[in-house]
Design a protein around this nucleic acid. Structure first.
Length: 304
DNA sequence: CGATTTTGACCAGCGC
DNA sequence: GCGCTGGTCAAAATCG
């Protein structure tokens, strides 16, 4: 696995002087190039390669920004933005292993969540709320284990086709943003992967997608369009990020790192300095700072 | 008619 | 303790 990370890592042609299509929204407060987590670190142990691959392959539009975070990183909402959403706090989980075994993450989650959905509460136990509480607790616990990563995509469509089937289960207004955030869940049985989709209000042409969890199943074969074929490849590939066909050769990727939200930052020193500088100059996170804290790293893709 | 979306309500965590 | 916010639930509505 770590090899895969490395592969991915070094395959990124970020040395190039890319002219990103992504418009610098506002400013990155506290953007400290010295405080980063390497993608390797971020992905260490639990990154959803499937999602990653998808993320890269799906863009129907001009550019994408990809980012990832590990369990130490605070998610999007946990920022100063709203005063902190506890649900997104992802304490370091010693258990978060690379082998995102379905028994651990999936099974656990299932027992909690699926129950809820699969079997509606028993009206006879009269414990509707008590049940909810228990479930919520489980939910919270589960949440902490989920690896996440986010990426930005230039797109007119909010919900991008990524090869999987999603079911929307909620929508909330985003603070400081006129655009709502949508919550999706993978419709595949036992699959607990979720994703959030919201549009950057700084750059309305940019959609921010945050994946949470790992798919424990192949891409639905019944998928429409080319997405299926495209993603199935990257999924099966041993090193999706580096070898997966989901990354067209003619496309350029810029790897960007953002300060990790975790309390302990790591200076990986792995990325060329000029890259950081370049990124620092060329890309900025939206004001409401979605990616700033949660996203230790980012990936840009520039289409011709 | 099953699957999906919509939408208001509920809950937990955090800051004050 | 209260209010705010993000995340989720679940019934109703809508879609194909």
């Amino acid at each position: 696995m770590s090899n895969e990370h490395r592969d991915f890592y070094y395959h990124t042609p970020f040395q190039e002087d890319h002219h990103l299509d992504v418009k610098p929204p506002s400013s990155i407060h506290g953007f400290d190039p010295s405080s980063y987590m390497s993608l390797t670190e971020c992905l260490h142990g639990s990154v959803d390669y499937n999602s990653l691959a998808k993320a890269f392959g799906l863009s129907p539009s001009s550019s994408e920004v990809f980012s990832s975070m590990d369990e130490d990183s605070k998610p999007v909402e946990a920022r100063d933005l709203d005063g902190g959403n506890s649900t997104d706090q992802i304490p370091a989980t010693p258990n978060s292993s690379v082998s995102f075994s379905s028994s651990e993450a999936g099974g656990d989650e299932d027992s909690g969540k699926t129950k809820k959905e699969a079997q509606p509460e028993n009206p006879e136990d009269g414990g509707e709320y008590s049940n909810k509480k228990d479930k919520a607790k489980k939910k919270a616990e589960k949440r902490q284990k989920e690896p996440r990563f986010a990426f930005m995509t230039k797109s007119e469509v909010d919900h991008l086709e990524d090869g999987y089937r999603w079911r929307k289960y909620g929508q909330k207004a985003v603070k400081n943003s006129p655009y709502p955030r949508s919550y999706y869940r993978c419709t595949t049985q036992k699959c607990t992967v979720k994703k959030r989709v919201e549009r950057s209000f700084q750059d309305p042409s940019t959609v921010i997608t945050t994946y949470e969890g790992q798919h424990n199943h192949p891409i639905p074969t019944t998928l429409r369009g080319s997405a299926s074929a495209m993603f199935s490849h990257s999924m099966l590939a041993p090193t999706p990020m580096s070898t997966g066909p989901s990354f067209p050769h003619h496309q350029e990727y810029n790897f960007v790192q953002f300060p990790a939200a975790s309390t302990h930052h790591q200076n990986i020193g792995a990325y060329p300095q000029n890259v950081n500088q370049h990124l620092h100059q060329q890309y900025q996170v939206p004001d409401y700072g979605l990616l700033q804290d949660i996203v230790p790293s980012m990936f840009f893709r520039q289409e011709p």
